[in-house]
């Protein structure tokens, strides 16, 4: 029993370097900023006479703002606050406030206007929820930079280790997204007869190029249909072993890049590719950054301080 508890404890609560969380914060922040840039048309997406559901029978803050004639101001304010939260999160300014604020404003956006949002935004909210419980601002952030400046004369800054749990939750979430998608697909006849990808890449709403996929590629498209289905259904199980995990992730990167080239579905591929950073070995991230800094000819000052923390 104690071995089980010890393993359970290690699985969820083992201390890891916070760099992987910083990397995820920056990646998710960039995707969030990109999405908000796409939604910058305030009259269309944020003002009440735009593409915004009113649900006048509803109660709550939105109803209060509508009845008091504050709809436009509230929409514009929500956009500004959401944008500030995501920018602050990306650069790591007041990170402990910025990440929960990004999550809260994302939830507020769903209540205000869910219409332009997609599965990518739902995934973003879940990832942000996980990130809230991590210390993602202690490195590679304005916070870390200003803390280092304040302590320039004192002892070296010690980088606190973070818990594994939020990272595990992000990994679980990625696996669940694919498993869920695969389970739904298996009930659809077009996925079972191998023509689903054909209809997606030919769709006038999604295809990148005017004519979609050329006729000669139909066999490839059929293989891609079954390949995608198999990969989504097996992704969660392939993650269980180190060797198959690499195969699953490399296949995922290739599939997302392939889809990125052939269809246009907004931020979905970017958020999923960003979430793959959660599968990096946490201890390898500071090592990789040190190598990168050495390669770029910059002194790796932060890793030296990290060693101090890691050896404690």
């Amino acid at each position: 029993m104690s071995i089980f508890l010890e393993r359970w404890d290690r699985f969820w609560f083992a201390p890891i370097p916070p760099h992987v969380y910083a990397l995820l914060r920056i990646a998710f922040g960039l995707v969030g900023c990109g999405t908000l840039f796409g939604l910058r048309d305030l009259p269309t997406f944020w003002f009440l006479d735009g593409l915004v559901p009113l649900h006048l029978g509803a109660v709550g803050p939105k109803q209060y703002l509508i009845t008091h004639g504050l709809g436009h101001a509230a929409g514009a304010a929500l956009y500004v606050v959401t944008s500030v939260s995501f920018v602050a999160m990306t650069i790591g300014f007041q990170t402990r406030i910025a990440v929960p604020a990004a999550l809260f404003t994302s939830l507020a956006q769903v209540a205000w206007n869910y219409l332009p949002l997609s599965g990518a935004d739902a995934a973003m909210r879940v990832f942000l929820f996980c990130l809230v419980w991590s210390d993602s601002g202690s490195v590679w952030s304005v916070d870390a930079w200003s803390a280092a400046r304040r302590k320039v004369a004192g002892p070296p800054t010690v980088v606190e280790r973070s818990l594994f749990a939020p990272l595990r939750l992000i990994r679980f979430q990625v696996a669940l997204i694919y498993l869920n998608a695969g389970m739904w697909k298996i009930f659809n006849p077009y996925w079972r007869n191998g023509s689903a990808v054909h209809y997606v890449v030919q769709s006038n709403i999604y295809r990148r190029l005017p004519h979609g996929m050329p006729l000669g590629f139909d066999h490839v498209v059929s293989l891609l249909t079954y390949g995608t289905l198999a990969w989504e259904l097996s992704f969660a199980f392939l993650l269980l072993f180190a060797r198959t995990r690499r195969i699953a992730l490399v296949a995922g990167i290739l599939i997302h890049l392939g889809m990125l080239l052939t269809i246009e579905v907004g931020p979905f591929h970017f958020i999923m590719l960003a979430s793959y950073l959660a599968f990096l070995e946490p201890d390898a991230v500071p090592r990789l950054s040190r190598r990168l800094l050495t390669f770029l000819g910059r002194p790796p000052s932060v890793p030296a301080r990290l060693e101090t923390a890691a050896n404690q």
Binding site: G38, L39, D41, I205, V265
Partner: peptide, 10 residues
């Protein structure tokens, strides 16, 4: 089609 149309999604 190079950019995402959030209006289409809405």
């Amino acid at each position: 089609r190079l950019v995402h149309m959030f209006r289409d999604k809405a």
